[in-house]
Each structure stands twice: as structure tokens, then as C-alpha cells.
Design a protein around this nucleic acid. Sequence first.
DNA 1: ATTATATGAAACTTTTTGGTTACATGTCAA
DNA 2: TTGACATGTAACCAAAAAGTTTCATATAAT
Lengths: 124, 124
Amino acid sequence: MSAAQKHDIFQAIADPTRRKILKLLADKKLPVTAISRHFPMSRTAVSKHLRILSESKLVSVEKAGREKLYKLQPEALLELKEWLSFFEQFWDNKISMLKYFVENEEIGKLNLIMPESNEESKDS
Amino acid sequence: MSAAQKHDIFQAIADPTRRKILKLLADKKLPVTAISRHFPMSRTAVSKHLRILSESKLVSVEKAGREKLYKLQPEALLELKEWLSFFEQFWDNKISMLKYFVENEEIGKLNLIMPESNEESKDS
DNA sequence: ATTATATGAAACTTTTTGGTTACATGTCAA
DNA sequence: TTGACATGTAACCAAAAAGTTTCATATAAT
């Protein structure tokens, strides 16, 4: 069912505000008003972002009195993970070293492992 | 350097055309004209997508005679991987079962592991 | 030299996106 | 039952995105 939903997960996470919302919800369920306090925009704008996140199943909603609690649904990120893993196959031999540099926040030094940094370049 | 580049990786992969381009380039380097044959749009439109992919370092360019060969740069996806890994911490215990369902294309049955599917719901 | 191929840039159009304000509804507290 | 709080929807607007066509430039082939 659901031939083509309007918002896919790639689109959903494209917006910085929505990514920040996801991080907020990682801690705990929150109602719209609480969420919107973290942003320099109206509650209504945040509400629209939440609708988009809901459509792509990244968050779920739960009624609690007059509030509606939004909850992170991290399983939806599985699709992204699968997509990523396809490309990792073209990548594997470099990943562990890259991980090292990233985890040590020294990604700026990454040219150290790039072989093309020689003085003169010979073809083939 | 480069305080805030115009296109980040999340935006770059948000567009389906660009994701397809990345898959094409996974196989081999290609010039714009060859790439655009896979799409129902003009070469110029594809060229613009490639510029966006370049800006976010997902592809690199290499001059070859009168052609320009575009090449996949999968390392740029590391940022995405890092972002994802943050959320996996809220996810770990479910991941293996989810993987099973996904790999067997039975994601529709996922409610099997959702505890809230009882007949009546008791508060707290 | 001349023609054909490969490309990017510019100007323009249409659609989508992200935001606003105003309004209607539902729930809690007095 | 009246007032305050929490929310979503509607109508609207501006800016960004994605596409088009036209043009200019560089390289290759004849």
C-alpha cells in the first residue's frame, strides 16, 4: 500500500531544524510547545516540521490529555542505513582509518592517507 | 576553512535524481552526457545536480580531453554515517530483529515486536 | 580551417518549501 | 461555565529548488 508517500526519509532529514528536532526527541517524548521553545520560529512552523517527520515515520504521536507527545522512532532510519551500506562496499578498505581520524577530530589531517600527494604525478 | 558551504550532504542526497547519479557513478567514472542519458531531463539539469554533488564532495571531477569525468567520492558519506550512529544507540536492542524483517522483505509484519498492540491499554 | 562534440554559465519559469498570521477545536482549571 | 492552555488547519507570502532554452568556449576530427 501507499504507492508513493509525499515525504521520504531523505527529504525529511534534509532540513536542519528537523534534524535538531530528532536529537531533542532522542532524550524524551515532547509536546510541540516544548519543542518550539528551542527554535526561533513559530510553534506552527515546528508543527509542520513534525508532520513531515511523522509522514516519514521518524516520529510517532501519543495523546496525553490536551497535549500530544511526539516520540522518536529511530527504526525508520533503517532505510537510510541500508542505503548507506550499499556505498560502503566501495569504501571498506579506508573506513577503519577514517574512523580513527574522525573519532579523534583530526579529519583535517586526512590527506596523510591520500596517495596522490606526491611531488610529481606519473600517468598510469 | 569554508565557513558554511551552500549545500550540505543531507540536502545533496535528498533529491532522488542525485541519489540515482551516485549509484551510477558507483560502477565507474562517467561524463555528464553519459549520465544524462539515464534521465528524462536535459543534460544541463543533470549538470546542475552534479555541481551540487561536487559542492558536498560526493563526487570529484577529472578532465579527460574534452570530457569531464565525474567520480564517486564515497568517503563524503562518512558524515552521514556518523549522524546515523548517534541514533543507533536508541535502537541497538531492536536492530538485529529489524534486520531480519527487512532482509526478508517482511517489514510489514513489524508490529509483531511492538508491545503496545494489546487489546486495552493501562496507564503507566 | 571548418565542423562536430562536450561542457558550463546565464536568464528565465514553475513548483516546492519554510515560514507567517488568523482561526477553530479540544481539554484542563477556577 | 468561563477562561486559559495546547494544538492543528487554512490562507497566504517569500525564497529556494529544479527544470528549461539559449549562448559561449574548449577540444577533437576531417
